[in-house]
Amino acid sequence: MSEALLTLKGVHTHIGQYHILQGIDLVVPKNGLMVLLGRNGAGKTTTLRTIMGLWHASQGTVNFAGRDITHSATPDISCAGIAYVPENMGIFADLTVRENLFLAARNVKKAGEMDTARLEWIFGFFPALRKFWGQPAGTLSGGQKQMLAIARAIVEPRKLLLVDEPTKGLAPAIVRSLIDAFLELKTTETTILLVEQNFNFVKSLGDSVAVIDDGRMVHTGTMAELSGDMDLQQKLLGLALEHQY
Protein backbone atom coordinates (compact mmCIF):
# COMPACT_ATOMS: atom_id res chain seq x y z
CA MET A 1 0.00 0.00 0.00
CA SER A 2 1.00 3.58 -0.54
CA GLU A 3 2.20 5.96 2.17
CA ALA A 4 -0.02 6.84 5.11
CA LEU A 5 -2.07 10.04 5.03
CA LEU A 6 -3.59 9.67 8.47
CA THR A 7 -2.23 7.66 11.38
CA LEU A 8 -3.85 7.06 14.74
CA LYS A 9 -1.57 5.52 17.36
CA GLY A 10 -2.96 4.15 20.60
CA VAL A 11 -5.77 6.71 20.70
CA HIS A 12 -7.93 6.82 23.81
CA THR A 13 -10.92 9.14 23.97
CA HIS A 14 -13.03 9.92 26.99
CA ILE A 15 -16.44 11.53 26.75
CA GLY A 16 -17.10 12.91 30.19
CA GLN A 17 -16.37 10.04 32.52
CA TYR A 18 -16.86 7.37 29.85
CA HIS A 19 -13.83 5.71 28.32
CA ILE A 20 -15.03 5.29 24.73
CA LEU A 21 -11.99 4.69 22.53
CA GLN A 22 -9.56 2.33 24.19
CA GLY A 23 -6.41 2.38 22.12
CA ILE A 24 -7.26 2.80 18.44
CA ASP A 25 -4.53 2.14 15.88
CA LEU A 26 -5.45 3.08 12.35
CA VAL A 27 -3.45 3.82 9.23
CA VAL A 28 -5.34 5.40 6.35
CA PRO A 29 -3.27 5.05 3.19
CA LYS A 30 -3.06 7.96 0.80
CA ASN A 31 -5.55 7.78 -2.09
CA GLY A 32 -8.28 5.25 -2.21
CA LEU A 33 -11.21 4.58 0.02
CA MET A 34 -11.03 2.99 3.44
CA VAL A 35 -14.13 1.68 5.11
CA LEU A 36 -14.55 1.73 8.87
CA LEU A 37 -17.04 -0.89 9.95
CA GLY A 38 -18.46 -1.81 13.31
CA ARG A 39 -21.74 -2.35 15.04
CA ASN A 40 -23.87 0.28 16.79
CA GLY A 41 -22.03 1.98 19.59
CA ALA A 42 -18.67 0.51 18.57
CA GLY A 43 -17.00 3.90 18.48
CA LYS A 44 -16.95 4.77 14.77
CA THR A 45 -18.42 8.24 15.16
CA THR A 46 -16.21 8.89 18.15
CA THR A 47 -13.17 7.96 16.06
CA LEU A 48 -14.12 10.46 13.34
CA ARG A 49 -14.88 13.16 15.90
CA THR A 50 -11.53 12.56 17.54
CA ILE A 51 -9.75 12.94 14.21
CA MET A 52 -11.71 16.14 13.60
CA GLY A 53 -10.79 17.56 17.00
CA LEU A 54 -14.40 17.63 18.16
CA TRP A 55 -13.31 15.29 20.94
CA HIS A 56 -9.70 15.26 22.04
CA ALA A 57 -7.69 12.13 22.61
CA SER A 58 -6.70 11.70 26.24
CA GLN A 59 -3.83 9.48 25.16
CA GLY A 60 -2.12 8.54 21.90
CA THR A 61 -1.47 10.59 18.78
CA VAL A 62 -3.25 11.57 15.59
CA ASN A 63 -0.97 12.38 12.70
CA PHE A 64 -2.20 13.88 9.43
CA ALA A 65 -0.06 14.56 6.38
CA GLY A 66 3.09 14.60 8.44
CA ARG A 67 1.62 16.86 11.14
CA ASP A 68 0.64 16.05 14.69
CA ILE A 69 -2.97 17.21 15.01
CA THR A 70 -3.78 15.44 18.28
CA HIS A 71 -4.30 18.69 20.15
CA SER A 72 -5.20 20.97 17.25
CA ALA A 73 -8.46 22.89 17.20
CA THR A 74 -11.18 21.80 14.80
CA PRO A 75 -10.86 24.81 12.43
CA ASP A 76 -7.11 24.17 12.11
CA ILE A 77 -7.68 20.50 11.37
CA SER A 78 -10.23 21.49 8.75
CA CYS A 79 -7.80 23.97 7.21
CA ALA A 80 -5.09 21.30 7.15
CA GLY A 81 -7.26 19.54 4.57
CA ILE A 82 -9.83 17.30 6.24
CA ALA A 83 -13.52 17.61 5.39
CA TYR A 84 -16.17 16.08 7.60
CA VAL A 85 -19.67 14.84 6.79
CA PRO A 86 -21.21 14.09 10.20
CA GLU A 87 -23.77 11.42 10.92
CA ASN A 88 -26.54 13.99 11.27
CA MET A 89 -25.24 15.76 8.15
CA GLY A 90 -24.88 19.14 9.91
CA ILE A 91 -26.86 20.98 7.24
CA PHE A 92 -27.63 24.65 7.89
CA ALA A 93 -31.38 24.37 7.43
CA ASP A 94 -32.00 28.10 7.49
CA LEU A 95 -29.52 28.75 4.68
CA THR A 96 -30.07 27.94 1.03
CA VAL A 97 -28.25 25.15 -0.80
CA ARG A 98 -26.11 27.81 -2.42
CA GLU A 99 -25.24 29.45 0.88
CA ASN A 100 -24.38 26.10 2.45
CA LEU A 101 -21.90 25.43 -0.36
CA PHE A 102 -20.61 29.00 -0.27
CA LEU A 103 -19.65 28.66 3.40
CA ALA A 104 -17.94 25.36 2.69
CA ALA A 105 -15.86 27.05 -0.02
CA ARG A 106 -13.50 28.58 2.48
CA ASN A 107 -11.39 30.51 0.00
CA VAL A 108 -14.29 32.18 -1.76
CA LYS A 109 -15.28 35.67 -0.58
CA LYS A 110 -18.50 36.10 -2.57
CA ALA A 111 -21.10 33.47 -3.39
CA GLY A 112 -20.91 34.38 -7.07
CA GLU A 113 -17.22 33.53 -7.18
CA MET A 114 -17.52 29.81 -6.54
CA ASP A 115 -15.70 27.58 -9.02
CA THR A 116 -18.41 26.91 -11.58
CA ALA A 117 -16.57 24.06 -13.28
CA ARG A 118 -16.36 22.25 -9.98
CA LEU A 119 -20.00 22.96 -9.21
CA GLU A 120 -20.97 21.53 -12.60
CA TRP A 121 -18.93 18.45 -11.78
CA ILE A 122 -20.86 18.09 -8.50
CA PHE A 123 -24.22 18.69 -10.21
CA GLY A 124 -23.23 15.86 -12.54
CA PHE A 125 -23.76 13.30 -9.80
CA PHE A 126 -26.04 15.32 -7.50
CA PRO A 127 -28.45 17.00 -9.95
CA ALA A 128 -30.94 17.75 -7.19
CA LEU A 129 -28.60 20.40 -5.83
CA ARG A 130 -28.88 22.40 -9.02
CA LYS A 131 -32.64 22.12 -8.90
CA PHE A 132 -32.94 23.35 -5.31
CA TRP A 133 -30.05 25.82 -5.55
CA GLY A 134 -31.91 28.77 -4.06
CA GLN A 135 -34.04 26.87 -1.56
CA PRO A 136 -33.52 26.67 2.18
CA ALA A 137 -31.65 23.44 2.84
CA GLY A 138 -34.15 22.60 5.57
CA THR A 139 -36.78 21.92 2.90
CA LEU A 140 -34.70 19.21 1.17
CA SER A 141 -35.47 15.52 1.56
CA GLY A 142 -33.18 13.33 3.64
CA GLY A 143 -31.32 12.03 0.59
CA GLN A 144 -30.91 15.49 -0.86
CA LYS A 145 -29.56 16.73 2.46
CA GLN A 146 -27.01 13.92 2.41
CA MET A 147 -26.00 14.96 -1.09
CA LEU A 148 -25.62 18.54 0.07
CA ALA A 149 -23.54 17.44 3.05
CA ILE A 150 -21.19 15.51 0.77
CA ALA A 151 -21.13 18.32 -1.78
CA ARG A 152 -20.09 20.72 0.96
CA ALA A 153 -17.15 18.48 1.77
CA ILE A 154 -15.93 18.42 -1.83
CA VAL A 155 -16.81 21.91 -3.06
CA GLU A 156 -13.11 22.65 -2.72
CA PRO A 157 -10.45 19.95 -3.03
CA ARG A 158 -9.47 18.45 0.34
CA LYS A 159 -6.89 15.80 1.11
CA LEU A 160 -9.16 13.61 3.24
CA LEU A 161 -12.92 13.16 3.53
CA LEU A 162 -14.47 11.70 6.67
CA VAL A 163 -17.98 10.50 5.92
CA ASP A 164 -20.18 9.08 8.65
CA GLU A 165 -22.89 6.60 7.60
CA PRO A 166 -24.16 8.40 4.52
CA THR A 167 -26.72 5.73 3.62
CA LYS A 168 -28.53 5.80 6.93
CA GLY A 169 -32.26 5.83 6.32
CA LEU A 170 -32.01 6.34 2.57
CA ALA A 171 -33.99 4.62 -0.16
CA PRO A 172 -32.09 2.21 -2.44
CA ALA A 173 -32.31 4.54 -5.43
CA ILE A 174 -30.56 7.29 -3.51
CA VAL A 175 -28.00 4.82 -2.15
CA ARG A 176 -27.16 3.84 -5.73
CA SER A 177 -26.59 7.45 -6.69
CA LEU A 178 -24.32 7.83 -3.65
CA ILE A 179 -22.32 4.83 -4.85
CA ASP A 180 -21.91 6.52 -8.22
CA ALA A 181 -20.79 9.69 -6.51
CA PHE A 182 -18.20 7.87 -4.42
CA LEU A 183 -16.92 6.00 -7.47
CA GLU A 184 -16.49 9.35 -9.16
CA LEU A 185 -14.74 10.79 -6.10
CA LYS A 186 -12.36 7.86 -6.10
CA THR A 187 -11.05 8.98 -9.47
CA THR A 188 -9.84 12.21 -7.87
CA GLU A 189 -6.87 12.60 -5.56
CA THR A 190 -9.02 12.68 -2.46
CA THR A 191 -8.63 10.02 0.19
CA ILE A 192 -11.87 8.86 1.80
CA LEU A 193 -12.51 7.32 5.20
CA LEU A 194 -16.06 6.05 5.11
CA VAL A 195 -17.97 4.82 8.15
CA GLU A 196 -20.71 2.35 7.26
CA GLN A 197 -22.88 -0.40 8.62
CA ASN A 198 -24.30 -1.28 5.26
CA PHE A 199 -21.72 -3.79 4.06
CA ASN A 200 -23.29 -4.20 0.64
CA PHE A 201 -22.94 -0.49 0.04
CA VAL A 202 -19.23 -0.44 0.72
CA LYS A 203 -18.27 -3.86 -0.66
CA SER A 204 -17.83 -2.48 -4.15
CA LEU A 205 -16.34 0.82 -3.03
CA GLY A 206 -13.72 0.05 -0.43
CA ASP A 207 -10.08 -0.60 -1.09
CA SER A 208 -9.17 -1.31 2.50
CA VAL A 209 -11.23 -1.93 5.56
CA ALA A 210 -10.94 -1.58 9.32
CA VAL A 211 -13.34 -3.01 11.87
CA ILE A 212 -13.85 -1.47 15.25
CA ASP A 213 -15.60 -3.00 18.24
CA ASP A 214 -16.02 -1.72 21.77
CA GLY A 215 -13.56 1.08 21.21
CA ARG A 216 -10.82 -1.22 19.87
CA MET A 217 -9.62 -2.06 16.38
CA VAL A 218 -10.36 -5.74 15.79
CA HIS A 219 -9.38 -6.10 12.15
CA THR A 220 -7.64 -4.30 9.34
CA GLY A 221 -7.03 -5.56 5.83
CA THR A 222 -8.11 -5.26 2.23
CA MET A 223 -11.73 -5.18 1.17
CA ALA A 224 -11.10 -8.01 -1.29
CA GLU A 225 -9.97 -10.24 1.54
CA LEU A 226 -12.98 -9.47 3.76
CA SER A 227 -15.67 -9.61 1.09
CA GLY A 228 -14.34 -12.96 -0.11
CA ASP A 229 -14.32 -14.52 3.32
CA MET A 230 -17.81 -15.18 4.66
CA ASP A 231 -16.50 -16.69 7.88
CA LEU A 232 -14.45 -13.63 8.63
CA GLN A 233 -17.43 -11.40 7.92
CA GLN A 234 -19.55 -13.52 10.20
CA LYS A 235 -16.95 -13.37 12.93
CA LEU A 236 -16.27 -9.65 12.71
CA LEU A 237 -19.58 -8.23 11.78
CA GLY A 238 -21.94 -10.91 12.99
CA LEU A 239 -25.61 -10.43 12.49
CA ALA A 240 -25.37 -6.77 13.34
CA LEU A 241 -24.79 -5.97 9.71
CA GLU A 242 -27.78 -4.98 7.72
CA HIS A 243 -27.97 -6.76 4.41
CA GLN A 244 -30.27 -4.27 2.86
CA TYR A 245 -31.03 -3.38 -0.75
Partner: peptide, 23 residues
Protein backbone atom coordinates in the same frame (compact mmCIF):
# COMPACT_ATOMS: atom_id res chain seq x y z
CA UNK B 1 -9.98 17.09 -11.40
CA UNK B 2 -13.39 18.55 -12.08
CA UNK B 3 -13.11 17.93 -15.79
CA UNK B 4 -14.80 14.56 -15.91
CA UNK B 5 -18.53 14.99 -16.31
CA UNK B 6 -20.04 11.62 -15.54
CA UNK B 7 -23.47 10.59 -16.75
CA UNK B 8 -24.74 9.35 -13.45
CA UNK B 9 -28.45 8.76 -13.33
CA UNK B 10 -30.16 11.42 -11.30
CA UNK B 11 -31.68 10.20 -8.10
CA UNK B 12 -35.36 9.50 -8.46
CA UNK B 13 -38.00 10.83 -6.13
CA UNK B 14 -36.96 14.46 -6.44
CA UNK B 15 -40.27 15.50 -7.89
CA UNK B 16 -42.11 15.53 -4.60
CA UNK B 17 -39.63 18.03 -3.23
CA UNK B 18 -40.70 20.56 -5.83
CA UNK B 19 -44.13 20.69 -4.25
CA UNK B 20 -42.70 21.36 -0.84
CA UNK B 21 -42.11 25.09 -1.07
CA UNK B 22 -42.84 26.61 2.29
CA UNK B 23 -39.62 28.43 3.08
Amino acid sequence: MPNAMPNTTPAAADASALLRRVP
